[in-house]
Design a protein around this nucleic acid. Sequence first.
DNA 1: CATGTTTAGGCACTGCGTGTCAAATCGCGT
DNA 2: ACGCGATTTGACACGCAGTGCCTAAACATG
Lengths: 206, 206
Amino acid sequence: MPRSAKVGRPLRSSREQVAEAALSLFVAQGFERTTLDQIAAAAHVSRRTVLRYFGSKNDIVWGTFEEHLHRLAKQLASAPPQQPLIEVVRQAVVSFNDYGAAAQGQLRDRMTLITTVPALQGHAMLRYAQWCDVIAAFAAGRLEITADHHVCQALANAVLGVAMATYRHWIAHPEDDLLTKLDEGLALLCEGFAEPALRRAVGGER
Amino acid sequence: MPRSAKVGRPLRSSREQVAEAALSLFVAQGFERTTLDQIAAAAHVSRRTVLRYFGSKNDIVWGTFEEHLHRLAKQLASAPPQQPLIEVVRQAVVSFNDYGAAAQGQLRDRMTLITTVPALQGHAMLRYAQWCDVIAAFAAGRLEITADHHVCQALANAVLGVAMATYRHWIAHPEDDLLTKLDEGLALLCEGFAEPALRRAVGGER
DNA sequence: CATGTTTAGGCACTGCGTGTCAAATCGCGT
DNA sequence: ACGCGATTTGACACGCAGTGCCTAAACATG
């Protein structure tokens, strides 16, 4: 398990190196028509090593998503308590998707793959579920209920839905600004998911 | 393409027969530990025939979802024009998921698989996307914009999010009523996605 | 230089999904 | 009764993803 702890054989290759090689192949000739053998050859690595880095062909597209998730959780936790729940979520989700102008091209490549290739569309749901758990956990803390409560899950999934829709829109309309559209979409949720409405929905049933 | 049009060799087996055999195997020994060969043997059919009926192992779990979708579209289309958009959606989604008391057991089996098995969680997104398209198309008609418009997609995906959350809740809490919870969750959306708010969001930008 | 530790690559295997082809089984016309 | 077209079925062969296992390679340490 210890990924290079100064002892043992050093790594001959890096995760990023493999990911880059794979991404260019995906963009150039399509995800499905790219085999793991081709990726391994392009990255000067064996097929077995590619799968050790990423676990599956689908995972290669997601890069460092998991670490990115931890930052989302931290930002939510550090929000001022007096700021309304839904507003905290709205703001955190927007800044979570702010990868900076430099990474826009790569982000578009990744999201184009994820939203168009069926195998990746499906696989994305697994990542989105992790993402939802973070939102739901935060809402649960604020509302003093468990994260598996219906209201938390409904809120988190509704936010996810808006985010997915916004990404698809951004792919189809590159001229629009991703963060602006995201903010607009989330604004629609703000009324229904305002805290009084949420507490009313929770109220009484435990 | 013609599935038995009174000419040619008649079908020796049925889709439903294969689906039933597969479902019992999935429930009994798990989805991943069930191979296509086992399903084929249980249904007294060849592996090739199973894949001709369903296209993939994942698809077997979804049964007649596509035809069910058409009924959703028709119900949306036949709603009275004076009924508010979000209310029509709310009502249609609730009754879309009303499979009757008799089918509750089978529905729970199916949804348990879909929400717990990773491969099926992922595959579900592809079906949900079709489902979203139906909702978005209806909203587009009402708002006199195209279905790929940001507001339509955000609405449809938010509704989807609530539905997914509700199903997961129902799996974990069998004592609760699916349709009631669904209705409650959708109620949270009704304010933000009320028609004035939607038209305001659409307004001006064409 | 021996030893332990970790990474890399090779190999075999299971299982899904696809393409292809011949055999089976019908209706229909002659 | 017989052939003919239409259609389904099963068998076989592939390609590819993913997993397990084993050996070799490349370091640090003593």
